[in-house]
Structure formats: C-alpha cells, structure tokens
Design a protein around this nucleic acid. Structure first.
Length: 309
DNA sequence: GGGTGGGCCAGTTAATGAGT
DNA sequence: ACTCATTAACTGGCCCACCC
C-alpha cells in the first residue's frame, strides 16, 4: 500500500512525462500510448481512492495531471503533426514508477549522492524574485515550480523532489538575508515586510525586468484564516499600491532608509546570483563587533531562535 | 484536551572546489 | 596538503490546523 506522499510523487513523475511530451512534436500514436498509460495511472489512483486515503490536494493533483493529458490531446488534434518516431520506454518506465518501492534509506547514501550537481534553480530563483515581499510558495506553487524545473531536466534520475524545493526556499530565505531583513526591519512581521517591499517597489519604479524583482501579489485572506494559517493578511492591491516608506517608517531618517534599500538590493543580488550566507554574516560582524573575531557559524549558533510571540 | 501531521525555522553536518 | 567558503541536506524543535 503506497503512502500519500508516494502517490503524489508518482503522479508528479507521470506529470513530468506529460510535460515533456508537450514540449515535443508528438504524434497521435504516442498520444494514444500515453492514454493507455493514463489508464494504468487511473486504475492505481482509483485503488487508492477506494481506500479513502487520498487528500483533496492529491485529488487535485490527479485532476491536474488529467488536464495535462487533455491539453496534449487538444494540441494534437489541432496540429495533426506528422508521425514522429518516438523510441520511448515510457510504458515500462511508468509501470516501474508505479510498482517499484521508493527508496527510503536516504541516510544510507553519501552526501555526494544527495547533492545534485545539475540542480536547476532558475525557476525557483525566478519565483523567489517575483514574490520577494512574501517568498513562501504554497504547495501548489511548489509543485508548479517542480514541474517546470523537471520538464527541463531530461534525465529522470536527476529530477528534483518536492522536499528539495522546500529546502531550497528555506535555505534561500535565510542565506539571502531575507530572514534577517524580516527580523531587523519588520520585527518578524511578514505583513509589514510585504508592505515595505511594495513601498520599495513603488519608489524604485520600472518593471519587473528592469528592477529584476517584485514584491509579489497581494494575497487576501480573512483575518481568521490568516491567523490560523500563520500567514500574513496582505493588504489590498488597490490600497497598498500607494504605500510609501515615509508613511510606513515615519521615524526612520533618509540615511537609514537608503541603507535599508541597499540591503534589500543586496538580497535581490544574492537570490539572483546565488545566496552567499557568510558574506552577510561578515558584514554583520564587521559592523556590529569590529574588534571581536567570531566565526559566522558561532554567530549563527548564538543567534536567537524563533520564540513564541 | 491530547495526538498527529505539515510547514517552517535555527543549528548543524559533510562533500566539494578554489585558493594558498 | 591544507584551509576555507559554499551549499544540499539532516536534525530537532516550535507552531498551527485538524481530528478524535
């Protein structure tokens, strides 16, 4: 009996196959072949569904995979592309995916095995920069990023897993200085940080392309759900567009505001080029305690952990 | 109210590559 | 050969939502 996570993993695997097919010139025989594979998936899925173990999220994922196939069908019927020889072993692969147990002993592999040299962070970086005011992708966002990233990776063995996306965002928030910025300038208040990001975006002007980042979209949550979900109730896009740093931080002088914008710009650079955790730490160390030498890891070790508000 | 699972975090480990 | 910076991934803890 597969676990919920394994079912999701297998569905995502099949989605990659479909996404891969969508990027190619696919003939109708291959499409019918994929339909057969879909039937296999559907049977497996129904089996799980009978057990009543599938969550809504998994059911939605199943529906999305089904949509992908529909999409593929539309393209084929519209284009009527010429027959193309596809030497795919997708059938065997899918049966393998569906039947073979997922390796559990991650600890048994060396770190060399765990590290993926071809880790393609382009889509993750792009998403992060486009939602810099609140870089917390939902499960669906992460799966979307995962699908887009893996669609670019031909070798199935090198494809990313969901947990790698989760870890990348956690590490990047911390290493880019985003978390430190949140603590320092917004006192841990994610709503305030989002508003600050929007204010900076307003003052910077330009487009996402020229600015290379965006505060992101305003997510409207009800106060209750916002509190329950531990997510900020972000401001209305119509009202937040008029926010200014002056109004948000009336007690901050121009020099401090410029320093803050510089730090924000540094975060953008670190995400864009690659987070450099220790560079930020060095700067902090030089600024805060130029006479005392302490390792960055020590400073992290002694930094305050998340505390109950 | 207690148990459970998911998401996030800080702290940490360890492989790797670049520099000396 | 050694040191050091980088970074993927692990560990343990906290918080919250959900279920019974």
């Amino acid at each position: 009996m597969l676990t919920q996570e394994e079912v999701r993993q297998k569905l995502l695997e099949f989605e990659y196959t479909l996404l891969d097919a969508l990027t190619r010139e696919v003939d109708e025989s291959y499409y019918s072949h994929l339909r057969q594979l879909t039937e296999i998936v559907r049977r497996e899925f129904a089996l799980q569904q009978e057990q009543g173990t599938l969550t809504n999220a998994t059911l939605q994922l199943g529906a999305r995979v089904s949509d992908r196939l529909e999409q593929l069908g539309h393209i084929l019927h519209e284009q009527r592309t010429q027959m193309q020889r596809i030497h795919s072993n997708a059938s065997q692969e899918l049966v393998l995916i569906l039947r073979s147990p997922i390796p559990r002993s991650r600890a048994s592999g060396s770190l060399r095995d765990r590290r993926d040299p071809t880790l393609n962070a382009k889509h993750m970086r792009d998403w992060f920069l486009r939602h810099l005011g609140h870089p917390f992708p939902s499960r669906e966002d992460k799966e979307q990023i995962l699908a887009e990233t893996n669609a670019c990776i031909r070798d199935r063995t090198l494809r990313l897993k969901y947990t790698q996306i989760v870890l990348w965002f956690i590490n990047t928030r911390r290493r880019s200085g985003w978390t430190a910025f949140l603590r320092h300038y917004a006192r841990g208040d994610k709503v305030k940080l989002f508003n600050l990001a929007q204010a900076i975006e307003n003052e910077e002007g330009g487009t996402h392309e020229t600015r290379q980042w965006s505060a992101g979209h305003a997510i409207t949550l009800t106060p209750a759900s916002a509190v329950q979900a531990n997510k900020p109730m972000l401001s209305d896009p119509n009202t937040s567009s008029g926010l200014s740093l002056q109004s948000l931080l009336p007690n901050m002088d121009d020099i401090a505001r410029r320093a803050m914008k510089r730090e924000w710009s540094n975060i953008v650079d670190r995400v864009r080029i690659g987070a450099k955790e220790r560079i930020g730490d060095w700067v902090d160390e030089v600024i805060s305690a130029p006479s005392t030498a302490s390792s960055s890891s020590q400073s992290r070790r002694h930094s305050t952990r998340r505390t109950t508000p």
